[in-house]
Design a protein around this nucleic acid. Structure first.
Lengths: 382, 382
DNA sequence: CCAGTCTCGGAGAGCGCTCTCGCCGAATTC
DNA sequence: GAATTCGGCGAGAGCGCTCTCCGAGACTGG
């Protein structure tokens, strides 16, 4: 730590600086500490429309028209105005604009999770899924000059905060990513009549647009691959069956296997974690020792299954083939690399963003669902 | 026209009712009184301060004071106002507020990456690092009622957009996470005199607060662990040396090894990817066949090194011990599970947020750097 | 050549909020 | 009890922007 950079003063804290938390003056009951409003003619802050108008020798309205391309403005005046904008370094104040337009140019990305029971959170930000979704949205939002505002929704009060943010135009709509099947968030959004799109089909039918992957097709792909590789005794590790996607993946897999001659598929439920994959595989093995193929409803459980398989002395894929679902990045670096059903998360997220933006632009837009086709990412485990 | 102005006076009540019920109120007949300057009773939706004031029988100012806890307001009046707020379902319009306070209650999280060369992006949203950082920030931001707005900064125009967003109060400050050493973003922020905090020490000294991990200490931890496990011929796989952290990790490791008797540490550079880890290890093996320990500057490269090691017939950790850096989630599920230097990313991110918020509240605040101590996460690979 | 039509810039009214200022009534003082 | 202080509420002025309405000038047609 002798190599402190030459930045003025460095207060080096080895642990999270609890001391810092107290240095701020007592915050008022609610809201941020607010400073006095300066008389602000134009000397202190950023240039305003007014300033540009003065420099250009036109009215505010004209400048506004040029900035927004609203109505036709004579070419020469337009040039003068643009010149003035450049020299003043003017940038529109979005607060003022949204105050009158009632558009914010922002949407809320709601990461909706855990019940407020004992556990701190079911939301795992370290899950690459999260980043991929956000990244996908970003790609679609940015060209339309819309920014995502991140909000967590774990408790009722979190959800209320999301709703009220939306209700008074803090943002124009919501993109919801739930980590549970019975998430109340979509319902609240519909009730409030707010523009929103959710990732994955909601637990109960609800008039809300969503984007999803054809889970049954993905499971079928896995089944067919296993069968094609010669598997004859196949088992499944499912996710929590109150989650629609887990349900679909399981039933899709079972149906496909039935079509290929294996009417009964031994199944054990997990909860999408690595540990539950280990446990599920272990109990599967105890009862069905001659398994030669396993389909897990996500990659983490598939990895757990492989662990359990190897612990029992079986080789993957030689003795037992394993397929996961998600094509997550952990599957790519694991050994053996995981064969997995790939859902195009980024594209799905981008589509969510597009649908939401359309809905915001045209509130009368019909509720739609867009289903993406999964593909099989074949690696080493099957 | 019949039902418009005549019954207009009752509109407050009906609005309050609609707000309470949360029902979808049919939009008022549009077309008739839209254009002319109405006294603005029943606008588009949410109740305003004005409405609350009317219901409570006080002035706007008083309601505002109650909402913001600004000045002392008589207890009974306060009760009446709160009551009115509840019945109307009032929530402050942040655009209006920020227009006068010049505070937005939002900060920009800038994910700053790639030069605008050929490649689409160096930003990998699937990297769990990203989510962990955002999650950590969220935890610190939420209690202070501040929301993060996500922005990418890959091109100059992206960066300009961030700067101007900040300049006209679209957000109060920036939390910057760079994926490269020579990121221009921090410099631009400083130039513009905008509140910002960056993750990891910037490439060049710059008067900007940052949060970092003691990279040298982490590398020392790795070195000492390897030595303690009996390694005598140790190599290193470093990251790009223009990235300060990669530089520190390497030199810290070399110094520590020197103190323990190994003056020369064979080193090959990588670029933080899995593939580069494979390549680096392979070339290391070609020249130094008797290696018994490897330190990689991040987990992905460590995993790549293990792959190359195993491909060459060596066992990990029996023949060669491998330590990574980051304690990323991929390391936990890989086999063998990766021993790694852990940096408390979430806490670091939370601290960034806290520093930024303090800086915003007190612009005169000194530039600080907070260095967190890494720990060693011992698993199976070393 | 004049009425009619069209084009385009300016004036001005707010959007919902905060905050300064002034005023009133109650508490305090001598 | 009158003068003074002071706490606390209301009035009102904007914050920077958009947008409607209006009017002046340019153009068209008969």
């Amino acid at each position: 730590m002798a190599d402190e950079p030459g930045v003025g003063s460095a207060s080096v804290d080895s642990r999270a600086g609890a001391a810092l938390a107290g240095t701020l003056e007592a915050t008022p009951p609610s809201g941020l500490p607010v400073g006095p409003a300066l008389p602000t003619i134009s000397g202190s802050g950023a240039p305003t429309l007014e300033d540009v108008a003065r420099v250009a020798g036109v009215s505010r309205a004209t400048v506004s028209r040029v900035v927004n391309g609203q109505r036709r403005v004579a070419a020469d005046i337009q040039a003068v105005v643009r010149e003035a904008i450049a020299t003043t370094g003017y940038v529109p104040n979005l607060a003022a604009r949204s105050l009158v337009t009632r558009r914010t140019g922002a949407v809320i990305v709601v990461v909706s999770g855990a019940e407020e029971q004992g556990s701190p959170s079911t939301i795992d930000f370290a899950d690459p899924f999260f980043g991929r979704v956000v990244g996908g949205m970003l790609r679609a939002l940015r060209p339309r000059d819309v920014d995502p505002v991140l909000m967590l929704a774990e408790t009722d009060s979190d959800r209320a905060r999301v709703i009220s943010s939306l209700r008074n135009g803090n943002a124009d709509g919501a993109l919801v990513v739930s980590t549970r099947g019975d998430d109340p968030m979509p319902g609240l959004l519909v009730e409030a009549g707010l523009p929103a799109v959710v990732f994955a089909r909601p637990g109960r039918p609800i008039p809300l647009s969503f984007v999803d992957v054809a889970n049954r097709d993905g499971a079928r792909l896995a089944a067919e691959h296993l069968v094609a590789r010669g598997c004859r005794h196949v088992a499944a590790i499912s996710g929590p069956l109150d989650v629609p996607s887990a349900q679909d993946r399981l039933s899709g897999f079972q149906d496909a296997m039935a079509r290929h001659g294996q009417a009964f598929v031994p199944t054990v439920g997990g909860n999408f974690t690595y540990e539950s994959g280990v446990a599920a595989m272990t109990s599967l093995l105890a009862e069905y020792g001659d398994l030669d193929g396993v389909f897990a409803s996500n990659d983490l459980m598939a990895l757990g299954a492989i662990e359990a398989l190897q612990a029992s002395g079986r080789r993957v894929p030689d003795d037992v083939r394993v397929i996961g679902f998600d094509d997550s990045s952990v599957g790519a670096v694991s050994r053996p690399a995981l064969t997995s059903v790939r859902q195009p998360i980024e594209e799905m997220a981008a589509e969510m963003a597009r649908i939401l933006l359309d809905t915001i632009a045209d509130p009368g837009r019909r509720v739609t669902s867009t289903i993406f086709e999964p593909t099989l990412r074949i690696r080493d485990s099957a």
